[in-house]
């Protein structure tokens, strides 16, 4: 419908003091438009607040409820398989050592979020570079890089991560993050490559090439900004994926060392 297209351009903000019957005379840059759209999207705002709240809690709350692996709580008689939530432990306790689940969750947030965000970020960076180069240059470069990507994507990711975490790991969470990033980028690379394949034939790229813009600059300044939103979407999902993935690996006993709490710890502390 050609009539609805003007919607995003003419928000109430663009109304100056004088009545203005014309469309979109106030120009906004890409980020302003994105921010304005974002602000209007209730669910997105809710999600943002939730996420920022979790990050703030991860930073602040461990100071109030610190966790020490070597402090073992005094056992309660009828909580051998874990207690349900009660006034002392609002999330309940684990079985065995009866650790307070709330303290574990609060303290685990730091490492889990760091692993998730770090792995997703590094994965996105490596993936964007590899995918961008492959998609932009094509030919044998593309062929070589994509075969590597194919090989890595064909390997069962969780298996490889388990093996590496077990063989190299001493429960260091940084290693887990690196492993997730090292095996998470091929998916991003494939996505970015397909975006680049479409974008590199767009007229604005041809125009940039015609005035002599260098390849690096075309890749990073002209094409990448147009491919950013799918990359962001994929990376956001990857954050959640990595957090759950770390939980899997740790649940199976090969992830982060038990003395460092993560969100997987309540599932394995007995």
């Amino acid at each position: 419908m050609d009539t609805t297209r003007a919607t995003d351009l003419a928000g109430p903000e663009s109304a100056g003091p004088a009545p203005d019957y014309e469309v979109g005379l106030v120009s906004l840059n890409q980020w302003q438009i994105a921010w304005r759209r974002f602000r209007r999207h209730k669910l997105a705002m809710f999600g943002a607040f939730l996420f920022l709240g979790i990050v703030a809690a991860a930073i602040a709350l461990p100071f109030i409820w610190p966790f020490d692996f070597y402090t073992i709580p005094t056992p309660k008689p009828n909580c051998r398989i874990g207690c349900p939530p009660n006034p002392d432990n609002i999330f309940g306790t684990t079985g065995g050592l009866q650790r307070d689940v709330f303290t574990l969750v609060v303290n685990g947030a730091r490492v889990s979020l760091a692993i998730g965000l770090g792995a997703a970020l590094f994965g996105a960076i490596i993936g964007s570079i590899v995918g961008g180069v492959a998609g932009y240059f094509g030919g044998w470069v593309d062929n070589l890089l994509m075969r590597i990507v194919d090989a890595l994507l064909s390997l069962p990711l969780l298996f490889v991560i388990l093996v590496i975490a077990r063989f190299l790991g001493s429960g260091n969470w940084l290693l887990i993050m690196v492993v997730f990033a090292a095996f998470g980028w091929p998916g991003v690379a494939r996505l970015v490559r397909s975006l680049f394949l479409t974008l590199r034939n767009e007229v604005f790229v041809e125009a940039a090439r015609a005035v002599g813009v260098s390849s690096t600059r075309i890749i990073f300044r002209h094409i990448l900004p147009n491919a950013v939103s799918p990359i962001i979407v994929a990376s956001t999902l990857a954050v959640a994926g990595v957090i759950v993935g770390e939980a899997f690996v740790s649940f199976l006993g090969f992830g982060v060392d038990v003395t460092t709490p993560t969100w997987a710890t309540p599932s394995r502390t007995r």
């Binding site: 003007a6 109304a15 009545p19 014309e22």
Partner: peptide, 8 residues
């Protein structure tokens, strides 16, 4: 000028 905004 341009076509008036459908909202104003």
């Amino acid at each position: 000028g341009v076509v008036p905004s459908p909202f104003r």
